Amino acid sequence: MYTLPHSLHDHVRTAALRVMEGGRHLTDEIAWILREVDANEIRAKAVRDHLYRMVRSGDLDPAVDVEATSLHMPDWLRLRCERSLGERLQAFLDASALDAPVFLRVNTLQATMEQCIETLAPFDVTQISEETLRADRPYGLFRSEAFAAGWFEQQDITSQRVVRSMNVIPGQRVYDACAGVGGKALHIAALMQNKGRIVALDVVESKLLELKRRARRAGATIIEPRHITSTKTVKRLADSADRVLIDVPCSGTGVLRRNPDITWHLTEDQLDELVQQQADILRRNARTCKPGGMVVYATCSVLREEGADQIERFIAENNEFTVTNSWSTLPGEDEGDGFYVAVLTRSTPS
């Protein structure tokens, strides 16, 4: 294991404090350090491992073994997790204190699995499924020619399962209600073989601009980014989609392996606001599904109030929708992130 040089101790300690007390994002701080120093693969890994360990545990000693880690969590959030998980709480905490693997989705619009395996061999890739690779030496991966050519995207294996739950087919009209920078929309486009139409919606215009850039690189030509400027943007789409993905903003408790800074930034009031926001997003966007179509509700959270409770309330108030399938995972199950997913169908009027 590589020991962090003393010359980097102050950089890493300063970065950890800015994350824990200043509200900075962990990935931004890692990027700052690597710009400040002469980075190579070993040094970059040391910086990342030690900074993640500090933020996870709250221990600011850079000399502590990066494997000796625990998970910082405020009491109120631990209690919420315990209410949702019961006897599974400790397994969740233990898994969330570990690193998440780097999963890649082969973009079948631009490349084959065989091409990616051969080209990405220096990054120690292993095929996990027909469209998924795990990269065990990811340093420099996103500066590779294969990435620039749109051959693959980084996407968690459970996130990929969310998209496959939609059962999309070429030629359909699909809405991604909270598209963000487009990770799932790009996957949908590949599964649809660039045939049909995907309307990617978001309230943050800068995210949609990044989605456009990613779509160009991926060769995904059927995605139409659409900025939500008022409630009318969604209302105009009523009863028109074959499939609707509602991947709501959430606490992120299912992705603490990747984003341990969440436990320092999230407040109880913010979580309660998110729960209300999720209910509103689900209610408004489910109406864009046409009768006979399908809605997939997803959240990368392990909390019942963001998952099963939302669906139970929605179904009780909207009897034309039926849950045909639901599933959930904890972080680390199948090596993926924690998610709750419900697949709903909208009945056809008799």
Results as ranks from 00 to 15, higher is better:
199 V>D: 04
63 A>C: 03
139 Y>F: 15
118 E>S: 15
66 V>N: 05
301 S>A: 03
46 A>G: 09
12 V>M: 06
62 P>W: 01
15 A>G: 12
93 L>V: 08
347 S>W: 04
128 I>Q: 12
164 R>D: 00
231 T>P: 04
1 M>D: 11
61 D>Q: 12
165 S>D: 12
151 W>T: 07
348 T>D: 02
121 A>T: 14
274 L>H: 08
148 A>E: 13
252 G>W: 01
182 G>W: 07
286 A>H: 02
293 G>W: 04
134 R>V: 15
334 D>N: 13
69 T>F: 01
340 Y>V: 06
41 E>K: 12
121 A>K: 14
232 K>Q: 10
2 Y>M: 14
200 A>P: 01
64 V>T: 14
107 N>F: 02
122 P>K: 00
144 S>P: 10
39 A>K: 05
195 K>I: 12
115 Q>I: 07
295 V>D: 05
118 E>I: 08
18 R>N: 15
200 A>L: 03
247 D>M: 12
106 V>A: 03
126 T>M: 14
98 L>A: 11
197 R>S: 13
335 E>G: 07
283 R>N: 11
292 G>A: 10
148 A>T: 09
222 I>P: 03
168 V>N: 01
94 D>E: 14
64 V>D: 02
65 D>P: 05
77 L>T: 12
55 V>R: 03
196 G>Q: 07
68 A>Q: 14
47 V>E: 11
133 L>F: 05
72 H>E: 06
16 A>D: 13
297 Y>I: 00
66 V>E: 11
219 G>M: 04
282 L>K: 07
124 D>H: 11
161 R>G: 04
342 A>T: 13
241 A>L: 11
289 C>K: 02
49 D>K: 05
21 E>C: 13
41 E>A: 15
162 V>M: 00
165 S>H: 12
93 L>R: 01
201 L>P: 06
126 T>V: 14
53 R>C: 04
263 T>S: 07
71 L>Y: 08
10 D>W: 11
177 A>R: 11
222 I>M: 13
332 G>M: 09
307 G>P: 11
180 G>M: 06
62 P>T: 04
124 D>Y: 06
48 R>S: 10
228 I>D: 04
51 L>F: 01
139 Y>K: 12
69 T>K: 03
141 L>I: 12
238 A>D: 12
176 D>V: 14
261 D>E: 15
91 A>Y: 08
205 E>H: 13
117 I>P: 06
247 D>I: 10
264 W>P: 07
304 R>Y: 08
330 L>E: 03
109 L>S: 01
92 F>T: 08
28 D>F: 08
